[in-house]
Every structure is written in C-alpha cells, then in structure tokens.
Simulated assay, not measured.
Amino acid sequence: MVAFPDNERCDIAGRYEPEGAENHEETEAKSKDATKPPSRCIVWRNVILMFLLHTGALYAIILIPKAHPFTWIWSYTCFIVTALGITAGAHRLWSHRSYRAKLPLRIFLAVANSMAFQNDIFEWSRDHRAHHKYSETDADPHNAVRGFFFAHIGWLFVRKHKDVIEKGKRLDVSDLLADPVVVFQRKYYRTSVVVMCFLLPTLVPWYFWGESIWISYFLASILRYTISLNVTWLVNSAAHMYGNRPYDRNINPRENRFVTFGAIGEGFHNFHHTFPFDYSASEFGLRWNPTTCFIDLMCWLGLAGNRKKATPEMIKARKLRTGDGSV
C-alpha cells in the first residue's frame, strides 16, 4: 500500500486537492460541480502492480502439476508462516496487545510479517487500530460501507481518505514505537521483504531438491503471496458483509466460516469486533483456529503469556443484550 503524502489529500468524495491550493473561485467551481460523479485519487502504480501480481498467480496455477511435491509442501508452509505474521503477529499481538510475547517470538513474528508483505508492523497495526476505532466510517482505511470491492482491494487503489490520515494521527501508538523489534523491522522493511517474501521462498526449493527456479518463484512466492493477500482482504470484505451476528447485531462484522477456514481463525469477526481484546478472537478456543493453537503452543513453551480472554459470563450477557439470536 502506498503511503499518503503529507502535501496531498482527498476530499470526502475522493478528489485530489493539493494542500493550500483552494481559493474562492475553486470553491465556487466545486459547488457547481457538486452534482457530477466524483473522480478518484487513483494510485495507478498499485493498480498496475496488483494486475501483474494476479496475472502471475493465474499463470502459476498451470505450473502446479509440474512442480515437485516438496515444492507444494514448502509453498503451503510459507503460506502458514505468512499468515501467522499477520494473525498472531501484527493483529493479535501488536494491534490489540491481546497477549505478551518474549523477544525470540517477537523476532520470529516480525520475520513472518515481512514474508507477508502487507506493510510493516507499525503501519499495519496503526491502520488496524483506526479500523476498529472508526469502523465503517471514512476514517476506516477499508470502510466496508463503500462496497465489497473497496473493502477487499479497492482501498489500495485510491489515496487514503483525509479522515484516515487526520484521525489516525490521534491514535496512541507509543507502545509500537517502544518495541525495538517493530522499530528495527520498520527501518529495514524493504530489505526484509525482498529476502523473506521473494528470495527465501524461491531459493529453498531450487537449492535443496533441484526445483526449477521459474516454478519455485511462481509457486512459493507469487501464488503464495497472492493467496495470502486475498485471504487477509476477505476479513475486511466478506467478514464485514456475509454471516450472522450473534454478539452484536448493531455492527457490520459477521461470523463467516469460509473466512475462518482460509484466514486460520480470523473469520469470527462479529466476536472479534465485540471483544477485540480476546487473544483467541473467538468464543470457541481452538476450534477452526490455528492461530489460537499457535499462541497456546508458544505459551506452553514459555515464549508467550498473559493471554486476555472474554469470560463465558461476559459473552452470554452480551449475546442476550445485543446479539441477533443466532448461534
């Protein structure tokens, strides 16, 4: 995702405006054009790159039968590591502080997050906190009210709404800046992405079992990366539109089993937005929740602790008060 330059902004309709360029004549002109369909601040670089990425992923599918079985296993392993870098790392640990992780685990999750290539931990966590605090408003980076396409991928194709910038600056991110792992990863993010997202996944199959570098690159890097992106985006789109709301019928996020399966436990979204502090992001513990299994394993190994959990009494009371009556 492209950062929003300080000297550029979009108005509420999404139009581009240089800072300080507005004058009386322009204001008058805008009022006359108010009925015209709004233009968008399209980030064409992102549009082109995403088109090429998805085209490469489609091409990679035809290479699957030609790949060594170990390459399939390796690609899926990289997908799981990629997912944990987001779910257990940027999301549940750094965005919500739903559990604590010791230094070795934080380093692993930061490395996995670089393999995910979805912005560095600081930016991902800051935007996610804005998503929760200002959910389904113009200050939400991927506001689902603007439609499935926008919530899924379209938000990357346009400049951030000015409310995302302005209200995002009010968020307390001091805890992120106080974590040396977060600061280090942010400083060397580009290098870490090249190594972890592209070089390592490609070179391992080529070096260890003689896989074609071409097949290795398209399967373990391009296809794996594209799938991981879309799985994450489905939490922003499908899980905000399709499913039931047993915990809070007054908010858009839903319980979506399809997303839960693909996003290794992140589809219990009505629960998560109702109880964002819960480390499991679900009422059901380990059920369909590999991320919770991973965190529990890390706690058993002594690498994590202080897991926060909504109590059964708290959950039951909330269901009765604001739930939609579904299970």
Rank of each mutant, 00 (worst) to 15 (best):
C293N: 09
T35A: 14
R224T: 11
G285I: 09
A60P: 02
V111A: 11
G210C: 01
R318M: 12
A29W: 10
R146Y: 07
A310N: 06
N7L: 11
L203Y: 05
F51Y: 13
H272T: 02
T137G: 08
T322L: 15
L171P: 02
Y188E: 08
I153Q: 11
H132Y: 09
A112G: 03
I73P: 02
V195M: 09
D127I: 02
R15W: 10
N46V: 05
T82M: 11
Q185W: 07
L176W: 03
S125I: 02
H132C: 04
W214S: 06
R170P: 01
T322Q: 09
D248H: 01
F117A: 13
W72K: 05
W44G: 05
T260C: 09
R190S: 12
L53M: 15
T202M: 09
D172Q: 10
G262C: 09
S39G: 14
C293E: 08
S216Q: 05
W214N: 08
H152Y: 09
V111F: 14
A13R: 15
R97Q: 10
H68F: 08
G325S: 06
L229R: 03
I61N: 02
T137A: 07
I64P: 00
R190F: 11
F51P: 07
R190L: 12
I107E: 03
T322A: 15
T87F: 01
F268P: 00
L200T: 12
C293I: 11
R321P: 05
E166S: 12
L234S: 13
T322R: 08
N230V: 06
K309H: 15
W74T: 00
L52G: 15
S237A: 13
A29N: 13
G14P: 03
E28T: 09
G325F: 04
I48V: 15
D11H: 06
L297Y: 09
I42Y: 05
D11G: 08
P38H: 11
D278Q: 06
A112C: 13
V194C: 14
E166I: 14
G285P: 11
V327L: 11
R170M: 14
F208P: 03
E26I: 15
V2T: 14
Y207Q: 12
G265Y: 00
E123L: 13
Y217S: 08
I227P: 00
